[in-house]
């Protein structure tokens, strides 16, 4: 049970049950769809940018606890960041969930996203944890096709 509690931390379970920013965003000027064929997770991420800043971000869709909680917490963390900061956060988050050392330099701290460190012990769940982030990146890059984790 110890391992499972590392994965399914209280904060993660709480976000999966009551996801934040879980809605469409009428003011969005960027939007992308993400799909994880392995488990059928499917999210749409909406972003409203102003210049280089992410003014607002939200998501909709269905997925497992890990992917939903990750999407929920991502929207909280990237709001108000610049695009470059969001990209750096993704890189840092990716390293966290794949068990790689954190990148050096002045990358922003992950803060509460550290609760996803348990994912690194469950390689099959890395795609769940990163789906929303891949989708955010696609939205910001203006990708038209749905991003897939495969």
């Amino acid at each position: 049970m110890a391992d499972l509690r590392e994965l399914y931390q209280e904060v993660i379970l709480e976000h999966s049950k009551a996801p934040r920013n879980f809605r469409a965003l009428p003011a969005a000027n960027h939007k992308a769809e993400g799909y994880n064929p392995l488990c059928g997770d499917r999210f749409t991420v909406y972003v409203a940018t102003e210049g280089d800043a992410i003014r607002d971000v939200s998501f909709e869709g269905a997925g497992c606890a890990i992917s939903k909680a990750s999407a929920s917490m991502m929207t909280q963390v990237v709001k108000g960041k610049t695009r470059a900061e969001a990209e750096q956060l993704f890189e840092r988050f990716h390293n966290l969930v794949t068990g790689q050392p954190a990148p050096g330099g002045d990358a922003p701290a992950l803060g509460k996203l550290e609760v996803f460190s348990g994912v690194s012990e469950f390689p099959l769940r890395v795609k769940c944890a990163t789906l929303a982030w891949h989708t955010l990146r696609a939205a910001l890059e203006g990708k038209q096709e749905a991003v897939s984790t495969e």
Partner: peptide
């Protein structure tokens, strides 16, 4: 409303 993927992992 537990996602099957979570059921499978547990």
């Amino acid at each position: 409303d537990i996602h099957p993927h979570d059921i499978g992992t547990i």
